[in-house]
Design a protein around this nucleic acid. Structure first.
Lengths: 215, 215
DNA sequence: ATTTATTCAGAACATAAGTGCTAATTACTC
DNA sequence: GAGTAATTAGCACTTATGTTCTGAATAAAT
């Protein structure tokens, strides 16, 4: 199969996009035929098949106007921006203490708007800015923004969490496992040693749902 | 005219919205009929007329699927989000070869909408999906989305780039340094050994501007 | 209860629109 | 230049789908 698109195929794609923007429903084959000045419906059909084969659009058989542009606006999974608060800094390893109180409320230092696919529609998402190189074992670099879901109940075993180790007033990003009242905090880098702490000594500040690095 | 909508009319509106989200084209009258368990097409038509009269949708006469929902997502314009293409997968270490041609055109597999702070207003940003655990030394995990800026000129020394090592047809994310025609590719993890290659053997596919991890 | 407006049922109809041929043409390859 | 593949033309066919008509059922008003 030829790799590039013919001018005719590009025209068709453009036409479909324009048509969608104008009408908010897809064109028929005959619409395309007229719009692109093509002599026969079969030619349109032929080229649409090729475009489908190349993954540029989808077609539903025997459905009028059953064309979906793969990369069109209306297909964007999430056009919605959700503003989430950035609740301060987080550090691990080299213990940088959290602000006085150990709740995160009222410590909002900033906010960012993120597309909803990053928050998966969940509520209670907030961000923390990583300070220092100490979380490399969680594949998190200095300056990264870590997205956390604040959870009330215990996390599932294996979840990556932001865990506050109370008696050290230190926060760390680790995989969380609990067994018989003992919590194991396992670095993502499995060659690093896990930490064992009493369950009462751990407060899970949130479940990690994402990391954003902007260079 | 009655002011409120009947349950049937609300159902129809909901159905149309769901249908649009699922298919990206509007339903036919008969789709609505089945979806809302209505006994006759004429009933659907009747209620659609009412909905049109109330300004909740538009219909194009004698046009199949000629329904447009007023206030639907696809009509909203959102200026804050920038859509960037995802141009395939990237892997390093365990060399997964790129598709035959070494240009990225026509390899778009998906797209995401990102807030503009991640692209810093730049054009020519695209994403690649990371496959495999082999880029841990760049603090990039399996499944991460790496944002690249396609650049024409040489990158600055120290930039992190996606570098294609031509004779191995292998791509890697490394810090880029050039000196006397020799390119040094330095892993982010400085304890790892850098790679030395001839400048002609390296093609910089893009400059890394961000990483997005969604768990 | 009678009238009136609204809503529903069922069917038939007309056209909108996808699909499938066959042949002609053009582009590519050897 | 022969031979093959890709593309185009034109047309017929079938299905998909909007439209319309008549009458019945229901709800609202008098």
């Amino acid at each position: 199969m030829k790799k590039e698109l013919s001018t005719k195929q590009k025209n068709i794609l453009d036409f479909i996009e324009n048509f969608l923007n104008e009408h908010h429903y897809p064109p028929t084959i005959r619409d395309i035929q007229q719009g692109c000045e093509i002599s026969s419906t079969s030619v349109v059909d032929y080229n649409l098949r090729i475009l489908k084969q190349k993954g540029l659009l989808n077609r539903d058989a025997e459905v009028s106007r059953g064309i979906e542009l793969v990369n069109h606006d209306s297909i964007k999974t999430d056009t919605e921006l959700i503003e989430i608060p950035i609740m301060g800094n987080i550090a691990a390893g080299a213990p940088i203490h959290l602000p006085e109180s150990n709740n995160w409320a009222n410590n909002q230092i900033d906010s960012v708007s993120l597309p909803s696919f990053l928050t998966k529609g969940k509520e209670n998402i907030f961000g923390v800015k990583v300070k220092g190189e100490s979380m490399i074992d969680a594949l998190v670099a200095d300056g990264d923004l870590v997205l956390l879901e604040s959870i009330t109940n215990k996390p599932n075993n294996g979840d990556m969490v932001a865990a506050l180790i109370k008696d050290q007033n230190e926060v760390t990003l680790k995989h969380f496992f609990i067994k018989n009242g003992k919590v194991t905090l396992q670095p993502a880098n499995s060659s690093m040693k896990p930490i064992q702490v009493d369950a009462e000594n751990v407060q899970v500040q949130g479940r990690v749902v994402g990391v954003i690095r902007s260079i």
